[in-house]
């Protein structure tokens, strides 16, 4: 039975079949890998670079970063404070969803991009207080439209920086390289 199958696979038609199966598996794998490298679909194609170009600070829209654990994603009220004074908001196709959300009073369901797992307790404030700038982890927003991760937020990425910033200070290293600093 298996010998007959091998014989059939060795003839030209069989080789073509093998090739098609191989190509199908390879392209699905490649597509899967490609999708993991894409920023998620957002309800509005929010251009970070445009807003940064206007001189708006990160902390204006994400004020939580200086105050507590979560940087926060602004509600449409914050968007509207500026956008209702901009004539383009009324006509732009890309901004139509914002207008709809404001008029109907429904929240914009942004998809968080920079996330850590549940077993990691991350606090923005400690990092901002330690003099870390947003772009050190989140990348250069002057070149990005929809936010994407410049790197994977894994433990190696965190710990590299923690050990580097502790330097020779043993007490600081104990604190920054301690499991209980992030995992509890």
């Amino acid at each position: 039975m298996i010998k007959r199958l091998f014989d059939w696979l060795k003839q030209p038609l069989g080789l073509i079949a093998v090739g098609i199966v191989f190509l199908a598996v390879f392209s699905v794998a490649a597509y899967g890998l490609y999708t993991t490298q894409q920023s998620p679909a957002q309800p509005i194609q929010f251009p970070h670079k445009t807003h940064v170009a206007f001189g708006i600070q990160c902390l204006y829209c994400h004020p939580g970063a200086a105050k507590g654990p979560s940087a926060g994603i602004p509600s449409q009220a914050k968007c509207w404070a500026c956008h209702q004074q901009i004539a383009k908001t009324q006509t732009s196709v890309l901004l139509a969803p914002l207008k709809e959300h404001v008029e109907s009073g429904t929240p914009i369901e942004w998809v968080p991009v920079a996330q850590v797992p549940d077993f990691v307790q991350f606090n923005h404030r400690a990092h901002v207080a330690a003099g870390q700038n947003c772009e050190n982890c989140h990348g250069d927003m002057t070149t990005q439209t929809i936010a994407e991760n410049p790197q994977v937020f894994n433990m190696g990425f965190c710990l590299d920086c923690h050990i580097k910033s502790a330097g020779e200070d043993q007490a600081k290293l104990n604190k920054l390289a301690d499991c209980g600093t992030c995992h509890y």
Partner: peptide, 10 residues
């Protein structure tokens, strides 16, 4: 934990 002198469970 060296920093807090506690027993951690990771």
């Amino acid at each position: 934990s060296q920093a807090e002198q506690l027993n951690l469970q990771v």
